[in-house]
C-alpha cells in the first residue's frame, strides 16, 4: 500500500526529523513548513532528541486492520523535551505500570503489517521507558 507515502515519511519515522522556526525558535513536529507559534515560514530541519514524557496514554484492545495481531497495545501522547506533543505507541512496557509524567525515549520498531496486499512492513518510532533515568520508585538503600 501507498509505497511512495511511506518512503516520503522516512525522515520522520526513523529519525524524528521535524523543523525549527528561524524566526521564533519554536520546534515543530511533524513538519508543516508554517510555524504554528508565529505563523511565519519555517522550513529549517531539526532533529529531535527522542526524549520526552508521557502526557496521556491508553491501551487499545479493538485495533484497526494491520494492527489487530499486536493488540492489546499502548498508545500515548508523548510530550517531547523540545516542546511538541506526538502520538506514539509505547513499547517494552509489558507488565510495568505506565504513568502520566513517565520519562520515555524513542526507539524504532515494526509498526504494522500490510496483510496480504504487498507484504510491506512499516517501521516507525515508538517510545519505551527511559533507560538512563533513575527509577522513580527505586527503594532507598
Amino acid at each position: 500500500m501507498e509505497i511512495p507515502r511511506h518512503w516520503r515519511l522516512k525522515k520522520q519515522r526513523y529519525g524524528l526529523v521535524g523543523e525549527v522556526c528561524p524566526h521564533c525558535d519554536y520546534k515543530i513536529f511533524p513538519p508543516r513548513d508554517v510555524c504554528p507559534n508565529c505563523g511565519d515560514e519555517a522550513k529549517d530541519l531539526f532533529t529531535f532528541s527522542g526524549k520526552g514524557q508521557v502526557y496521556s496514554f491508553t491501551t487499545i484492545y479493538e485495533a484497526p486492520t494491520g494492527y489487530d495481531s499486536s493488540a492489546p497495545y499502548t498508545v500515548a501522547l508523548v510530550k517531547l523535551d523540545e516542546g511538541p506533543i506526538i502520538t506514539a505507541q509505547l513499547t517494552d512496557v509489558e507488565g510495568s505500570s505506565v504513568e502520566i509524567g513517565m520519562p520515555v525515549e524513542m526507539v524504532t520498531r515494526k509498526m504494522r503489517d500490510d496483510g496480504d496486499e504487498r507484504g510491506i512492513l512499516v517501521y516507525s518510532y515508538k517510545f519505551r521507558p527511559s533507560l538512563l533515568v533513575p527509577q522513580a520508585h527505586h527503594p532507598a538503600g
Binding site: 507515502r5 515519511l9 520522520q12 511533524p30 496521556s56 496514554f57 491508553t58 487499545i60 479493538e62 485495533a63 484497526p64 486492520t65 494491520g66 494492527y67 489487530d68 499486536s70 497495545y73 498508545v75 500515548a76 501522547l77 506526538i86 502520538t87 506514539a88 505507541q89 509498526m111 504494522r112 512499516v122 516507525s124
Partner: peptide, 29 residues
C-alpha cells in the same frame, strides 16, 4: 477491524492512524 480502520481515516493518517490509534483510543487519551 475494518470499521476501526475506516474510522481511523478521520484522524491524521500520517502521524496518528499510523501509530494504531483508533477513534475510541483518541477519546481515551
Amino acid at each position: 477491524a475494518g470499521v476501526d480502520s475506516a474510522l481511523a481515516t478521520t484522524t491524521d493518517s500520517d502521524f496518528e492512524a499510523i501509530q494504531g490509534i483508533t477513534a475510541a483510543g483518541q477519546a481515551a487519551l
